[in-house]
Each structure stands twice: as C-alpha cells, then as structure tokens.
Design a protein around this nucleic acid. Structure first.
Lengths: 121, 121, 121, 121
DNA sequence: GTGGTCTAGACCACG
DNA sequence: GTGGTCTAGACCACT
C-alpha cells in the first residue's frame, strides 16, 4: 500500500484515499483477502485524522472493495477477476458518462475528443 | 439564454450556472456584446438568490467571458473567434488532463479509453 | 473639448467626465469664461445619459471649475492663474497623499518609489 | 495579524481587508505557511459579516497570497522571496501606472511629481 | 431601472 | 472545530 496525498488538490482527503485504494485493488496491487494496515497506523503515517481514514474505509466497504472484521482489521474483498472487472467498468463508465456529457455541452465533437485524448494520454 | 439547474446534482448552483453560460458562449449561442438579462430577473426565474447568480457572474467576469457595467447590465465579452477557441481549449484541456490521469490510475490503456469514448458518445 | 470615455475602465463615467474636464481646464485648453456645449449635445455625442453629464457638471460646479447660468449654459470659471494653481495643488496633493500611504503600507521606501516613478513616467 | 477598518473610507470593507493582508504578507509580518485565524473569529472581532471576510479571502486566494483547506483553515501561501517580490512588483506597478497617467493628464511634469513625492513621503 | 456591498443566520461537507 | 453554499432582504452607487 502506497498512498500519496496532495493538500493542494481540491479533492477532499478521504476521497483521494478512497480512489487510490480502489485503483490499487483494481490494478491487482492489493490482492484478494490481503489485510490492510490498522487505520491508526495509516492515520499516523499520513499525518491525517483517524476520522478521515475511517470515512474512506466506510466508503470502500459500502462499495464492496474491502470488508471489516471488528477487532481483527480490514481486508481486501475476495472477488473473482470477473467481479472486479464489473466494478471497474461501473466506476469508470459512471465517470466517463459525466465527462463526455460535459465535453459535448462545450461543443466538442467525437473526433475532437478522440484527438484530445490521444494527445494528452 | 436557457438555464437548467439540477438540485439533485452535487455541483453547487453557482457552478452549474457558470458552466452553462460558458458552454453557451463557446457554442456561439450567446453572441459577442449581447446583453444578459438582469441578475434579479434570472434569480427570480430560476428561483434562486441574487447572490448565487452574482457569484457565477463574478466567476465568468474573472475568466473573461462577460463584462459588467454598473447601472447598465452585463454583456457577453467581445472576443475574436480565435480568443474564444483559446479559452475553450484551456478550459477543456485542464479538465481532460485530470480525467485522463484518473483513467490511467484506474489501469485503463489508451485503447480502452478510446473504445469507451466511442461507445458512450 | 475632447472627451474620451472608456467603458472597460472601472471608473464610473461621470467621474471620467469630471476628471477630463478638470484636466483640460487646468492645462488651459478650456479658457476662463469659455462656454461649454449644452449637456444634451454632449450626452448625444458621447452616447451617454444626460443625467450622467449633469452629475459631472454638478461636481465641477461644486468644486468651482465651472458655473452655470440657467437658460444660458455652463461656463468655465473665471480664475486667476494663481487660483487655478491652488486648485491643482489641492486636487493632486489629496490623491498623492493617499497613493503614497498605499505604497508605504506595501513596504516601499522613498527611494523605491522615486525609481518606479522615473521608470514608468 | 492586525487589521484596522475605516468605515469613513469609501473603499469597501472586503477590499480594505484584502489590501491589508496583502501588505502584511508582502512585508513579511505574516510568514509562509502561517495559519490565519478562522474567518468566524475575524468576523466577530472586526464586527463584520463572515461573508465579507470570506470575500476578501477568496480574492487573496485567487491572487495566490493564501490557500485554504476545508475543515482545517486558511494559510499564508508558501512563496519564495523571489515570487513574493514578483507579486509585489506586479501589484505596485499596476497601480503606479494608473497614478502616473493621472498626474500626467493633470499636467504635472516628471520633476513636479518627484518633488511632490519627496515632500509628502 | 441597473449592479455593488453588507448583514444575520441556516445548513452541509470536511477533519 | 474548520470552511462552503445558499437564502432573504436592506441600502447605496451608477445610468
């Protein structure tokens, strides 16, 4: 687990945490069933409030990325690669639908979007 | 001018206003020098506070989309199509750079992004 | 009389008018006793409201730069060059005192101000 | 932090706030990274509305003098003395260019301006 | 009539 | 505890 927080970003800290955990689980860097470090440890290392870590963990649990066993810690959810792929698609499609709606509203054509993606990737 | 506000969106009202005005100016629906309706009228029609409209107008003015003359009203900025294109590119590239960073983090390849864009457009 | 108004400036129109008239009187371009054009004519030529012109005229009259004879028009005040010089000094010193207070507050030394003036003049 | 507001001045309160903060940051009285008091506290102490303080803070943030972290407070921007000097020059030159244009219009020579500055400093 | 400033107070999101 | 958003309404300056 390797978290990098940006204080200058507009994104709230708990969301940065959530997104980075999601990404690491989906990229397979955090494996099914693997135990996560205690939230106190994380909070101390990142110099943030325990409450903030908890908030991120709650969101991850709600979305089925991790599960918590009281007194024992939190673990990466045990998902088949198929289920994982589903989650990824849901997450990404949701965001991409919004993004594309925005670009369309700003008057971009499909071609222009594709060109821009190619250039910026 | 044609504004649609969504209360269910988590975007603040003033930002929805700002984005829609930007979009309409960039799509050429609001033309250079055109008068905008008085903020009070807009506030009444959209059933929001004058101050909320004002906040959006301030942001648009800061970003050079409109200008205001006290006692006379607010007007669409007089921009050449070149300047307009510049503004559009700046706005869009800023967002797209962030979006693509996110998709990359989530493990998408360029090819996958392009496919998804094609499908969702 | 030669007035140039800037709509993009933040200064209210009536103040731009006032300042330019003051300047022309003090530079001697408008001479003692000279008749000014009717405010309707000025308003029409500058494409501004008569009320705005009137406001500027009232201010100039209050400050002793012009005088008005009902039904006959407004005239440049008849001042000795000495009185004129006095007015100029009052006007300029008032503003300069404020300006210097600002520069001092921002931490500029006398030397820095003089250098900046030399460079920007 | 030490703010003095003048109700008799015709400058809006939020602008007085902005200018004084800028001045204190540029004079080094407020140091890089230093926490500012909560806006509510400032509002209470100065007996003005929270929103008025907020407006000044927004302007300072836009201009890169401070940054804000929701839930944690506002902080003096971390600028190198070089960047700070740049900001100072920009701010001051902008105003001074206008000021000098005014004095020139009023018929002052460079020599007269320099003398007046020397006398009034 | 326009926009500009300011107020008092509510409710929400973040840490 | 922070700051962020929004409201309803007042008063002033400008045209």
């Amino acid at each position: 687990m390797n978290i990098v927080l940006s204080t200058s970003s507009n994104k709230p800290i708990y969301q940065q945490l959530t997104e980075q955990l999601q990404a690491q689980i989906m990229r397979g860097e955090l494996k099914s069933g693997e135990v996560l470090p205690p939230i106190r440890t994380i909070a101390k290392e990142l110099r943030i409030s325990i409450i903030t870590v908890k908030k991120a963990w709650e969101q991850l649990e709600r979305d089925g990325f991790i599960y918590t066993m009281v007194g024992r810690g939190s673990f990466v959810a045990e998902l088949t690669s198929c289920q994982l792929e589903d989650k990824r698609k849901t997450l990404i499609n949701e965001k991409m639908a919004k993004d594309i709606a925005y670009y369309k509203e700003m008057g971009l054509s499909l071609k222009e979007i594709l060109e821009a993606v190619n250039k910026l990737f």
